[in-house]
Computed example of a mutant assay.
Amino acid sequence: MLKFAFRDYFGVSEARIHSYIGHRLRDGYGVTETLTDRIIAEAPRPALIITADQGSTDHERIARLRDHGFIVVITDHHGVPASGPPPAAMACVNPVREDSAFPDPYIAGVQVAWLLCCAVRQRLIRDGDLPASAPKLGGLLDLVALGTMADCVNLARSINNKAIIARGLAIMNSPVARPAWQALYVASHCKGPITAATLAFHFAPVITARGRLASALGGVALLMSDNA
């Protein structure tokens, strides 16, 4: 979702956007030491690093990234230590922070990242770097909907999660649906409209399985493919 937002909505060249996701079995989960080593060795500088669904407890690694010239912004929805978010980060956007004024602590990590991008769009317009007519990021809510279902977050307590999924499903079932949905629909032998159950029991397991056993970058490539 972040790549789509920066490339398609904010005009950042895809050549300037780099994805780093740890290999689950070799690196573990989150901003791990081995992943940090790889970023330091490979990523261009200066650079902004935006985490997705992780980072709130990874102070030591984020401090290393800062010390090597990176600016780190955390987007996450997991618990924050009692000592607070990592002070080495430029910002930590997380609805479960003790000082958070956001009224819904149950949203998925992907929605936190999407809301950050919505705020970035508003700021770019205010600063004159985007026209006021620049499209809103609602066209990405199909991706946010899938991420919300895959994250197994609370639906009963969060009107935001339910609204995101409802809008995302409408996009997925439209005639101009993303090629990934068309391909997954066929591969999963689905029938009828795409529903929340389709996301939970067909699409999400196919995409997340690879990330649980190896690298999730294959899922990123699938979602970003421009043809079925």
Rank of each mutant, 00 (worst) to 15 (best):
Leu2Pro: 11
Phe4Leu: 05
Arg7Gly: 01
Asp8His: 12
Phe10Cys: 12
Gly11Pro: 05
Gly11Lys: 07
Gly11Ala: 05
Val12Ile: 14
Ala15Cys: 10
Ser19Arg: 03
Ser19Cys: 03
Tyr20His: 05
Tyr20Trp: 08
Gly22Met: 08
Gly22Leu: 07
His23Phe: 07
His23Gly: 03
His23Arg: 13
Arg24Met: 10
Leu25Trp: 04
Arg26Phe: 07
Arg26Trp: 05
Gly28Ser: 13
Gly28Leu: 14
Gly30Pro: 06
Val31Ser: 03
Thr34Gln: 11
Leu35Val: 02
Ile39Trp: 03
Ile39Phe: 07
Ala41Asp: 08
Ala43Trp: 02
Pro44His: 12
Arg45Met: 13
Pro46Asp: 11
Ala47Ser: 11
Thr51Asp: 11
Thr51His: 11
Gln54Glu: 09
Ser56Phe: 12
Thr57Val: 08
Thr57Trp: 04
Glu60Met: 01
Leu65Ser: 09
Asp67Met: 03
Phe70Asp: 08
Ile71Phe: 09
Val72Leu: 10
Val73Ser: 08
Thr75Cys: 08
Asp76Met: 02
Val80Ala: 04
Gly84Tyr: 15
Pro85Thr: 07
Pro87Arg: 10
Met90Phe: 15
Val93Met: 02
Val93Leu: 11
Val93Pro: 01
Pro95Arg: 04
Val96Gln: 04
Glu98Pro: 05
Ser100Cys: 06
Ala101Asp: 15
Phe102His: 07
Asp104Met: 14
Pro105His: 04
Tyr106Pro: 02
Ile107Ala: 01
Gly109Asp: 01
Gly109Glu: 01
Val110Tyr: 05
Leu116Asp: 10
Val120Glu: 09
Arg121Gln: 15
Gln122Pro: 02
Arg123Ile: 11
Arg123Asp: 12
Ile125Tyr: 09
Ile125Met: 11
Arg126Glu: 15
Arg126Trp: 13
Gly128Glu: 09
Asp129Cys: 08
Ala132Asn: 06
Ala134Lys: 09
Leu140Asn: 01
Leu141Phe: 11
Leu141Met: 14
Leu141Thr: 11
Asp142Gln: 10
Asp142Val: 12
Asp142Asn: 13
Leu143Met: 10
Ala145Thr: 06
Leu146Ile: 01
Thr148Phe: 04
Met149Ser: 10
Ala150Asp: 02
Ala150Lys: 01
Ala150Ser: 09
Asn154Cys: 13
Ile159Gln: 08
Ile159Lys: 10
Asn161Glu: 00
Lys162Ser: 13
Ala163Gln: 07
Ala166His: 06
Gly168Asp: 00
Ala170Asn: 02
Ala170His: 02
Ile171Ala: 01
Ser174Ile: 12
Ala177Pro: 00
Ala177His: 00
Pro179Ile: 03
Pro179Gln: 09
Gln182Ala: 14
Gln182Arg: 15
Ala183Leu: 12
Ala183Gln: 10
Leu184Gly: 03
Tyr185Trp: 14
Val186Ile: 14
Ala187Trp: 13
Cys190Ala: 12
Cys190Thr: 06
Pro193Ala: 11
Ala196Ser: 14
Ala197Met: 12
Ala197Trp: 11
Thr198His: 04
His202Ile: 00
Ala204Gly: 07
Ala209Asn: 07
Arg212Cys: 13
Ala216Met: 05
Gly218Trp: 00
Gly219Gln: 01
Val220Cys: 00
Val220Met: 00
Ala221Arg: 00
Leu222Asp: 00
Leu222Val: 00
Met224Gly: 00
Met224Arg: 01
Asp226Pro: 06
Asp226Phe: 07
Ala228Asn: 12
Ala228Ser: 14
Ala228Tyr: 05
